[in-house]
């Protein structure tokens, strides 16, 4: 059966050679005469397969190798070894047919011409991708409606706010209707509203066009909102690849149960049930309970005690992922 996987990485590795320098005057002089080169393996034997239409998030601390993988995927870096295929192409050959299918958006870099209105950059890009003017016009109209951006397209880029600029960047990157989108920290520096709008747009775009989206982000919200699948990278190695929900269950198999009791006596008694306690505060107690045990425990407690209030919650995602990034 011809599978619908669009991206395939087998055993991909990437090394850089970096000159190192000791601090201070002595180090400088040493560096002058003899440079030491260190091999740094940024990506180690990575295997990834991605299906058409998926939204996949890359998670990892700074310097984990996310951006390097993304650059290998869009052909900007060639892998030191391994096999890579995207829609049947080798990205590092940068064939025009391949480039027509992809787009790259980087949160901290911009391709729009700074002194001119975004619309000029759009038409330039359209010409580069060989799109007729009338078609480009339709495309701009379609995307600007979706992005809710309009009169800003006629102001010089330098006069736009960061959020507006990002929208315009997206429009410039999507003008050629790419099938595969690479986003590197797209929400960097945006305020909460702008972040939410961007996420909504990406989700809608994925739904409407069936395009594949790969993104890296520091904001957990981006990932949890958009991606059902995540790939965790730590020091160049894939430490997890799969469903986000499952990852969360795996990392934190317990829920938090907060109970407010009428009497302090009940609290003392709850303490001695042999359950894990996260926190006790006067007449409030927070317990950690395995997800499969929650019904049974709850029943028990409700039968035995007179409660004022009760709340069941998931531990915050940021906390879990943060743990993942630092510990493992």
């Amino acid at each position: 059966m011809h599978s619908n996987k669009i991206i395939e990485l087998k055993d991909i590795s990437k090394s850089f050679f970096v000159a190192s320098k000791e601090p201070g005057l002595k180090g400088t002089l040493k560096h002058f005469f003899k440079r030491k080169y260190n091999e740094i393996k940024v990506v180690k034997n990575i295997n990834i397969e991605i299906k058409k239409g998926e939204i996949v998030g890359f998670l990892g601390a700074n310097g984990a190798g996310k951006t390097t993988i993304l650059k290998i995927l869009c052909g900007l870096l060639y892998p030191t070894n391994g096999f890579i295929s995207i829609a049947g192409y080798r990205p590092y050959e940068r064939k025009a047919e391949f480039l027509n299918k992809i787009s790259l958006i980087m949160g901290q870099k911009q391709q729009l011409i700074w002194d001119l209105p975004p619309i000029d950059s759009f038409y330039l890009n359209a010409a580069i991708y060989g799109i007729e003017k009338s078609e480009a016009k339709n495309r701009i109209k379609f995307l600007s409606e979706m992005l809710e951006i309009n009169k800003e397209l006629y102001l010089p880029v330098r006069k736009l706010s960061l959020g507006q600029r990002m929208k315009a960047e997206l429009l410039a990157a999507l003008i050629h209707n790419p099938n595969i989108l690479f986003l590197d920290e797209p929400t960097l520096g945006l305020d909460i509203n702008a972040q939410a709008n961007l996420r909504k747009f990406l989700q809608l775009y994925n739904k409407e066009t069936g395009s594949t989206i790969l993104l890296t982000s520091h904001y957990m919200k981006d990932i949890t909102y958009l991606c059902r699948r995540v790939i965790c990278i730590h020091e160049g190695v894939v430490t997890y690849d799969g469903n986000l929900e499952k990852l969360l269950t795996k990392l934190s198999p317990r829920k938090e149960l907060s109970i407010i009791c009428k009497s302090k006596k009940d609290i003392e008694s709850l303490k001695n049930l042999g359950l894990d306690i996260k926190n006790v505060e006067s007449n409030e107690i927070t317990l950690l309970i395995k997800k499969e045990d929650i019904k049974k425990t709850l029943k028990n407690i409700l039968n035995k005690y007179e409660l004022e209030d009760l709340q069941i919650s998931e531990p915050p995602v940021d906390e879990i992922i943060g743990k993942l990034l630092t510990n493992k």
Partner: peptide, 12 residues
Amino acid sequence: EGTLDFVLIKPI
């Protein structure tokens, strides 16, 4: 600024 990347991924 690292924007050469944008140039390199264009079909031109």
